[in-house]
Computed example of a mutant assay.
Amino acid sequence: MAPGNLKKVLVLNAGSSSLKFKLFARSEDLNLSLESRGVAERIGDLKSALSFCDASGKQKNISSQLGDHQEALRTIFKELKLSASDLFAVGHRVTHGSDKIYKASRITPEVKKIIADTIPLAPLHNPVNLLGIESAEALLGSEVPQVAVFDTAFHHSIPPEAYLYAVPLKDTAERLSVRKYGYHGSSYAFLLNRAAEYFHKPKEQLNLIICHLGAGASMACIKLGKCVDTTMGMTPLEGLCMSTRSGDIDPGAVLFLVNKLGIRKTDQLLNKQSGLYGLVKVNGNLDGVVFSAGIGEHSSPVRERICEGLEGFGIELSPKRNLSTKEGEISPNRSRVKVLVIPTDEEQQIAMETVSVVTGLGDG
């Protein structure tokens, strides 16, 4: 058992048939360092699997029948030789907090009810996020504090003129909650903090465009440290074209497809059978452009195409830096706007927010 102030933080990200985790150790100065990470896959299947590795990258794979998320979590604890007494807190990634929760929060019956009530807005994610929470509660009881960190929370600062659609205000926007929410919030929060370190200035003074380009792709516009707009909307389908999602499309085209194919096939088509195309729009007094996530971090050709023709806005790429940099600046020294590559770590952000909530340093 670790000393009380050095207990570990476990971050869980539950999927419909998977459970991803990262375990962070807390040092004496309360910084977090990755100790282990992994995923339980095909939960509920006869051929379930658990794979994990330590901070050095040493991998271990286990084939085991995992009947449900609680059994998967119990197996993770067993393999990591982890007990409740080792944990300072557990942080859960939760996709949607509606407009009722806009910060990381200690999990209470009231918070769980809001997550459940928001299922119609995130039917694929909130139910399994709630399942992950309940699995951890069943295993750990009330001994370990648990915190929910919401993907939508970072975008709470978006003003009404940006989050409202041109639909009837009372009957549609308010009564049915049809509005822009935004996603990838933990990634944006992490990247904003890391960018502030690169610029050597408080995040409250930064104006940025952040590009989270992975299988799911989005962008966020940051003004003085606050999100003022983002490309994803009421659902993660809006905005940029992604690896399998269509992104923006004429609503009339959607109605046409529903007419021809039905709702289920149209849903499958737009969410699972579409492609990726990057774009960027720059406006105002910009400090930097940040690329992150799988494509943003690793694809120099995509970064080059996105920045092409933006020299008039003060955005330039150094071909050499763009090809060779894993993390840091990829613009030439003369570029008015810095272009950065920063690897994201949503789980570490969730862990930091979890610690803040439990220690009372956050607003949760």
Rank of each mutant, 00 (worst) to 15 (best):
Ala189Asp: 15
His212Glu: 07
Ala215Trp: 15
Ala215Leu: 06
Thr172Glu: 11
Ala189Pro: 03
Gly182Tyr: 08
Ala215Ile: 01
Thr172Val: 14
Leu208Lys: 10
Gly214Met: 08
Val178Phe: 15
Leu213Pro: 03
Ser177Met: 11
Leu206His: 05
Tyr188Leu: 03
Gly185Ala: 04
Arg175Thr: 09
Leu206Thr: 00
Lys180Arg: 13
Pro168Lys: 09
Val178Ala: 07
Glu174Val: 12
Lys170Met: 12
Ala196His: 04
Ala195Tyr: 04
Ala173Val: 13
Ile209Asp: 09
Phe190Ser: 08
Pro202Asn: 06
Lys180Gln: 13
Val178Gly: 04
Asn193Trp: 01
Gly182Asn: 03
Glu204His: 15
Pro202Val: 01
His184Gln: 05
Leu176Pro: 02
Arg175Phe: 13
Pro202Ser: 04
Val167Asn: 07
Ala196Val: 00
Lys170Pro: 01
Asn207Trp: 03
Ile210Met: 12
Ala173Lys: 01
Asn193Gly: 11
Lys203Phe: 13
Leu169Glu: 10
Pro168Gly: 05
Phe190Val: 01
Gly185Ile: 02
Leu191Ile: 09
Val167Lys: 09
Glu197Ala: 08
Cys211Val: 00
Leu208Ser: 07
His212Gly: 07
Ala196Phe: 06
Val167Arg: 09
Leu169Ile: 03
Leu191Asn: 08
Leu176Met: 13
Phe190Asn: 10
Gly216Trp: 15
Val178His: 05
Leu176Asn: 08
Ala196Thr: 00
Phe199Lys: 10
Pro202Ile: 01
Tyr198Gly: 00
Val167Ala: 11
Leu206Lys: 04
His200Met: 08
Tyr181Ala: 00
Arg179Gln: 14
Leu213Ile: 01
Ile209Pro: 03
His200Ala: 10
Cys211Asp: 02
His184Met: 05
Ile210Arg: 10
Leu191Gly: 04
Glu174Ile: 13
Glu197Asp: 11
Leu208Pro: 07
Glu174Arg: 11
Lys180Met: 10
Phe190Cys: 09
Pro168Ser: 05
Glu204Arg: 15
Asp171Leu: 14
Asp171Gln: 12
Leu169Gly: 00
Leu213Ala: 05
Cys211Gly: 04
Lys203Gly: 00
Lys201Cys: 09
Asp171Ser: 14
Leu213Trp: 10
Phe199Pro: 03
Gly216Thr: 04
Ile209Phe: 13
Leu192Phe: 04
Glu197Ile: 02
Leu191Met: 06
Asn207Ala: 04
Leu176Phe: 14
Pro202Gly: 04
Ala215Asp: 13
Asn207Glu: 02
Asn207Tyr: 03
Arg175Asp: 09
Phe199Gln: 09
Arg179Trp: 15
Ala173Tyr: 14
Arg194Asp: 11
Tyr181Ser: 01
Gly182Leu: 05
Pro202Ala: 04
Gly182Glu: 03
His184Trp: 14
Asn193Ser: 12
Ile210Tyr: 15
His184Lys: 07
Ala217Cys: 13
Gly216Phe: 15
Lys203Asn: 08
Tyr183Asn: 01
Tyr198Val: 00
Gly214Asn: 09
Lys170Gln: 12
Ser186Ile: 11
